[in-house]
Amino acid sequence: MNPASTLAMNIDTSLPESAQRVARLLAEAGHDKPVVMLPQTGKTSAEAAAGLGCDVAQIAKSIIFRRAADDAPVLVIASGANRVDERKVAAQVGPLAKADAKFVRDKTGYAIGGVCPIGHLTPPVMLIDADLFALDSLWAAAGHPHAVFNLSPQQLEAMTGAPVADVALRD
C-alpha cells in the first residue's frame, strides 16, 4: 500500500469535507494531531477558547485582508487575545483593503470563521503574530467554523513559512 492511500484511510470521514481536506494536508505534512470538531461554533476566538477550555490567547486566528495594489490575499495569524494593527501589517506588505466573505472564500477556499493557516487556493502573503511564541500550545481553524487543530508556534511557523512580526494593536 502506498503512503497516500495509508493517509487517506486515517482521515476521519465524519468530518466536513473542508476539514477532511485540512486533515489530509496535516497528515501529508507529518503533523500528528487530529482535527477536532467543537460542539459549538468556533467562529470567534472567545467561542473557540470556551469550547476547548483554553485561554483565548491560544487561539491562532486567521485574519484575511486584501492587498490594495494587486488584490493579493494577506493572511495574518494572530493571537486570539490581540486585535491586529492594520498599520503595522500595511507597513510590512503594502496598503490594505477590506476582504469581504466572497473574497475570503474565493482566495482561501474556506469560509470566514474556518480559515486554516494552510491549504489556500491562492497562496497568501502571510505574517504570524510574534505574541503567539510566548505560548506552548495553539489551536487553529481547520477549514470549518467548528473544526480546529492543535500545534505549537514553531510548528505553525514551519508549516506556513511565514515571517514572524509584531502585528498586535497596543494601547
Rank of each mutant, 00 (worst) to 15 (best):
P34Y: 13
P34W: 14
V35K: 06
V36T: 15
L38N: 07
L38G: 12
P39Q: 13
P39V: 01
Q40N: 12
Q40F: 15
T41G: 15
T41H: 11
G42T: 00
K43T: 11
T44A: 07
T44M: 08
S45M: 01
S45N: 12
S45R: 00
E47T: 00
A48E: 02
A49N: 10
A49K: 11
A50I: 02
A50Y: 05
G53Q: 14
V56K: 04
Q58E: 14
I59T: 08
K61E: 11
I63C: 14
I64W: 10
I64T: 12
I64H: 03
I64Y: 06
F65Q: 08
R67I: 10
A68Q: 15
D70Q: 01
D71G: 00
D71L: 06
P73H: 05
V74G: 11
V74F: 09
V76W: 12
V76R: 04
I77R: 01
I77V: 15
I77P: 04
A78L: 07
A78D: 04
S79V: 04
G80F: 10
A81D: 06
V84H: 12
V84S: 14
V84L: 09
D85V: 04
E86M: 09
E86A: 14
R87D: 15
K88C: 01
K88Y: 13
K88T: 04
K88D: 08
K88W: 12
V89P: 14
A90N: 12
Q92H: 13
P95M: 14
A97F: 03
D100G: 02
D100K: 02
R105Q: 15
R105M: 13
D106L: 10
T108H: 08
G109C: 07
G109S: 10
Y110L: 07
A111M: 05
I112R: 12
G113D: 11
G114A: 02
G114N: 05
G114H: 06
G114P: 04
V115E: 10
C116I: 03
P117M: 13
P117V: 01
I118S: 09
L121N: 08
T122G: 00
P123A: 13
P124N: 12
V125H: 05
V125G: 06
M126V: 06
L127H: 04
L127V: 01
I128K: 00
L132C: 03
A134S: 15
A134T: 09
A134C: 02
A134N: 12
L135C: 04
D136S: 13
D136P: 06
W139I: 00
W139G: 01
W139A: 00
W139V: 00
A140L: 08
A140K: 01
A142F: 03
A142G: 12
H144P: 11
H144Y: 11
P145R: 13
H146Y: 03
H146K: 14
V148H: 13
V148D: 06
F149W: 11
F149R: 03
N150D: 09
N150Q: 15
N150G: 08
N150F: 08
L151C: 13
S152C: 03
S152N: 05
S152R: 14
Q154K: 10
Q155M: 08
Q155Y: 01
E157N: 00
A158M: 06
M159R: 00
T160V: 06
